[in-house]
């Protein structure tokens, strides 16, 4: 499996990681190498196999509908790179 530059560019965009043009080709080569090693999975016959998505076969347990949290905006904002008047601040978004 080989990834072309455009695919790598698209992935970087989806992942929101800035990528210099110069890094594109080497990264595409490296990722292609890893993906072609992974390609061996295609040999396995998985036709009748149920996918396993978790590390356990338990099912979800539910909690009561009780308010047990909140009321600590200070702690929520304590690590924020930017905060104003109780809000997080980000560069202006135009919808």
């Amino acid at each position: 499996m080989s990834l072309d530059d455009a695919t790598v560019r698209k992935i970087a965009t989806l992942a929101r990681i800035d990528l210099a043009d110069a890094d594109l080709a080497p990264l595409a080569k490296e990722l292609s190498g890893i993906m072609s090693w992974i390609e061996q999975l295609q040999e396995v016959d998985t036709d009748a196999v149920e996918p396993m998505s978790g590390g356990t076969d338990m099912t979800l347990s539910w909690r009561k509908d009780a308010v047990s949290d909140g009321g600590h905006a200070d702690k929520v904002l304590a690590n924020a790179p930017e905060a104003h008047e109780g809000f997080f601040g980000v560069p202006k978004v135009v919808e």
Binding site: R63, D65, A66, V67, S68, D69, G70, G71, H72, A73, K75, V76, L77, E85, G86, F87, F88
Partner: peptide, 27 residues
Amino acid sequence: ISNAKLFSGAPTDFGAEPNSQVSFVDA
């Protein structure tokens, strides 16, 4: 309509002070 959020114990009332109804899960 519920007292707390879907995956956290923070309240759901409308119109509270900013970030006052936020658990670390919600953040």
